[in-house]
Design a protein around this nucleic acid. Structure first.
Lengths: 109, 109
DNA sequence: AAGACATGCCTAGACTATCTAGGCATGATT
DNA sequence: AATCATGCCTAGATAGTCTAGGCATGTCTT
């Protein structure tokens, strides 16, 4: 039984980093942003998101800081680090390279 | 330490099915075809390919038959079944849906 | 004749990302 | 009082891919 996938595997880091490029966001906000910016096509499960955030933080690509949301709630805001921006560019390039290669093959084969 | 990926995860089935659309091929040939049609960008490891072929065969999407290659060697040729074509179309659609959603997000975010 | 290389198939084990399925807490709304 | 939205988290299962081997045959080179 094939499992429905909400994401293209391996792109979650890319999506997270990219959505933090403009401004720091908390986990919940990241999920909503990915969802809305993709026209409700991409959904990040919380069980995927939070481990990913911790992974990215450990790599030094994002940093966390507790702040208050506009709703007056405490939330963990993540911001891109300098290394994170570099990583983002690498992942962007990799995505372009691989996805266009797939596109090429699909057009030709 | 990030692991270099030769493929976008989850696209292998799609690539295999698509490369069998024109004519049956054996494993070795599938790998070479994916490689050349993608302008040497996508590489399928044999340790990924053969398990995938067996998986696809078990699903009923491809069938195997031993034949001789042009070089006079015995090789296992795989052909798309009717179900395989259906599956291919579904995976094609899914790929388009998800990859364009990623593209959209990357453009916007 | 020996060795290397290309062709061809295969598997076991490790790795890693994602998903499922929960839990916990707070504030607002009903 | 109950429910819902917001917000963070983890444990375990699942599954796909990669690493790193093994095996066999045929051809080409030395």
């Amino acid at each position: 039984m094939p499992k429905p996938s909400d994401l293209l595997q391996g792109t979650l880091d890319l999506l997270i980093l990219k959505s933090l490029l403009r401004e720091p966001l908390h986990g919940w906000g990241i999920a909503k942003r990915i969802q809305s910016l993709s026209d409700e096509v991409l959904f990040v499960q919380q069980g995927s998101l939070y481990p990913a955030l911790h992974r990215l933080e450990q790599q030094g690509w994002i940093v966390a800081e507790w702040k208050n949301t506009e709703l007056g709630r405490s939330a963990k805001f993540y911001a891109l680090t300098r290394d994170g921006k570099k990583q983002l560019e690498q992942e962007l390039e990799n995505w372009k390279r691989l996805s266009s290669a797939v596109g090429l093959l699909l057009k030709r084969a």
